[in-house]
């Protein structure tokens, strides 16, 4: 196939996965939070369950005015949402939905993932500084401090998985979770990494992932009650929608990465490798849904951490634990 045509199709495919994914998670958050805290969720938009609420919200945002404050640095202010959304979208490139259903199976997939996701920090800092507003500025600084602090445990937890799998390619990581560990009565049993000794890594990765997404209990950067909306304060209309979509698309991406690294990704036991290309996406979507539910559950259950508690958790607990985890994984890899 023509290279450019293929490229265009793949890019369209990423958008076709990302947009509905984000909308479904937004709707899920509206309904689940309504049930968890006995508050009234959407009822009417679109009929049953108010399923069209996210679409209606999107339309509402789109027809709002795109304001740029007078004190803002307008070029940087306008660019920031694109950088944030770009960093999130780029992670979708390497998420495998099946043995052959991946946009690009990069040899150093995990490394690429960490590299592109660091762009988000840049966009958030740009948004915070360029708004010309104290709340935005403090929000941007808090966000940067938090993202820097939690990037380390995230990377280190992923390193342990890469060591155990012996590869950086996400397809390779899933494949090594599909290997037979033991056999019971003729059935080959394969275990995901979370059951093969990466339980500490999994907990660290999920915690750090929540902090990277700036979700409660790690939502210091946007803390409405003290910073209005942090670095998002001055944004409106379509640009706010981009941040909003980026946040939920990032949540889906993070859930997909957790599923791929620790929960076996698209792999389902006792299913033929050819059939996995059909069943795989469904399996991955189910795992992503489970992880997203967990994220939402945590958000509506825990209170917000204080800034010093947040930094203490990262530097004093998560990073040392992740380093010990790498050491143990390395020893196990050599000995076993």
């Amino acid at each position: 196939m023509n290279f450019w045509l293929e490229l265009l199709l793949k890019l369209a495919l990423i958008l076709a996965v990302m947009l509905p994914g984000a909308l479904v998670v937004i709707f899920g958050e509206l309904k689940i939070s309504a049930h968890m805290q006995s508050r009234i969720g959407p009822y009417f938009a679109g009929g049953r369950y108010g399923w069209a609420q996210p679409l209606a919200d999107g339309l509402k945002f789109m027809q709002k005015e795109d304001l740029v404050p007078a004190a803002a640095d307008s070029m940087v202010f306008r660019l920031a949402p694109y950088i944030v959304l770009m960093g999130t979208l780029a992670t979708y490139v390497i998420i495998p939905f099946g043995p052959d259903l991946v946009v690009e199976n990069l040899d150093l997939g995990l490394f690429y993932l960490l590299a592109v996701s660091s762009l988000t920090t840049l966009g958030v800092l740009m948004a915070g500084w360029s708004s010309g507003n104290k709340y935005s500025m403090i929000g941007g600084l808090r966000a940067a401090a938090q993202l820097i602090a939690y990037e380390l445990p995230l990377v280190l937890a992923a390193v342990a998985v890469a060591v155990q799998a012996g590869t950086l390619s996400l397809n390779g990581i899933v494949a090594s979770q599909a290997e037979t560990v033991f056999t019971i009565g003729g059935f080959d049993v394969a275990l995901p990494f979370v059951l093969k000794g990466q339980i500490i890594g999994f907990l660290i990765f999920v915690t750090a992932g929540l902090a990277e997404l700036s979700r409660i209990p790690f939502d210091m950067p946007i803390a409405e009650s003290e910073l209005t909306m942090g670095y998002l304060t001055e944004y409106s209309g379509l640009r706010f929608t981009m941040f909003f979509l980026g946040e939920y698309a990032g949540m889906v991406a993070m859930a997909a990465i957790v599923s791929t690294l620790f929960l076996g990704g698209y792999y389902l036991p006792f299913v033929d490798a050819d059939l996995l290309n059909v069943v795989g996406p469904l399996v991955l979507v189910a795992k992503v849904g489970l992880m997203c539910f967990l994220f939402i559950w945590i958000r509506w259950t825990f209170p917000r951490l204080r800034e010093d508690q947040l930094q203490t958790l990262a530097w004093r607990w998560l990073i040392p634990a992740a380093l010990v985890n790498i050491m143990l994984t390395g020893i196990a890899k050599v000995v076993l």
Binding site: A71, A72, D73, F111, L114, A115, V116, S118, L119, T121, L122, L125, G128, W129, S130, G132, N133, M137, G140, L141, A144, A145, I148, E151
Partner: peptide, 25 residues
Amino acid sequence: VLVSIGAVVVLFLFGIMITRAPMGR
């Protein structure tokens, strides 16, 4: 991308902003 943009420049920006950030233009 990871080291120079994701870490070094982000820390530059962080340092500039936390010390005497001239906001706006």
